[in-house]
Design a protein around this nucleic acid. Sequence first.
DNA 1: GTAGGGTTAG
Length: 458
Amino acid sequence: MRRRGCAPIPPMYHVILEAACRGGGFRCAVRVLQDLRARGCALDVGNCNLVLNAVYDQVSVEEALRLLPDLLPSFGCEPDVVSYNAVLKGLCMAKRWGRVQDLMEEMVTVGCPPNIVTFNTLIGYLCQNGLFERVHEVLAQMAEHGCTPDIRMYATILDGICKEGHLEVAHEILNRMPSYGFMPNVVCYNTVLKGLCSAERCEEAEELLAEMFDKDCPLDDVTVNILVDFFCQNGLVYRVIELLEQMLEHGCIPDVITYTTVINGFCKEGLIDEAVMLLKIINFLCKKGLVEQAIELLKQMLLNGCSPDLISYSTVIDGLGKAGKTDEALELLNVIVNKGMSPNTIIYSSIASALSREGRISRVIQMFDNIQDATIRSDAVLYNAVISSLCKRGETDRAIEFLAYMVSSGCMPNESTYTILIRGLASEGFVKEAQEMLIELCSKGALRKHLMKHFGIV
DNA sequence: GTAGGGTTAG
């Protein structure tokens, strides 16, 4: 770019840095920052903050605290409120509340006072830890800073209160919000709705849903997810169908996402036949009805321009696989292909898992060999599904054989591949081998060191 | 292009 007289600007570095964070974490991203700087690139604080937010994978809180005075200036950047908020988040995660207060005082001193994000982050973590008295203190502190709550902060607090089980309090806050100048939005309602559903407080959940309709708060995909899961878990499948009807009555047009959620709810409940049937109805393939209501409703959905997308098929295929109906899953895969749709990695890995659970590895290989799309063929997730299933069957030896096939097919193992294999080895009693493999991979940088703790080996 | 809220097709 420079040779052509065109200077790169900080937003362009974002792409590189994001990839570095994702691929190699904080330490890798810092090396990239250093390299860019060495090449004379002018970095800005946004570049540094992007990296700073990846810090907690690899760095202790103490080290992170030193980054603000040391690291950022070394790249020619002064920490800003986003930088401080990143470190503050780490302190909250480590429950170092005293240090959080110190840091917030420092923020004032250096002319970078806490903002709404700072307070919301802190309040979120305090709620998570049940420290509601501290929340009151922080709210008072916030007022001193001339910072007023926003709707997101209400959602944070509602979530914290619900998770602590104080559902009446949450509901009360929801009711009072308008008097504070905030109409609860769908996120606030969803938060409380989720709380009520988790506590199996059916009637109140229904009342809140009615209130949402009443107040013309449009349900979104999250609402439908929460409710469908809840209805299915409580054997209220008919309520799922009614919900779709209610939505139509109130002018909410169920979209493909809603429809997918419903199918997924059925699948999760083991109602695979119902899920498949829903799909077939939409495809005009089904001659017989499930429930009269359902058919009528699904016709309406169809009239609304709703036809199954890849995710709908994916959901059913996964459900079929998990129900042991692998050959039906394979049939449905054919349906997709014949319709001219391109199955993706998720679909193939669902089927691969199902086949592997039955030990049908040669069928898996046959399927993999027939996949034309190079991006899918080189996706480790696909192979990991097989390796994982084999390990769960106690066939780690076959899993290792399959690893060889994976590599020979041109797909590099990723961190998950090794994680699965190490677990497999350990669970079959090869603890020493698992340990050696873990240490070797960590030393080669193929596995992040913090994962070692998860295995309880180091 | 960088930080804060509810959930999710592998």
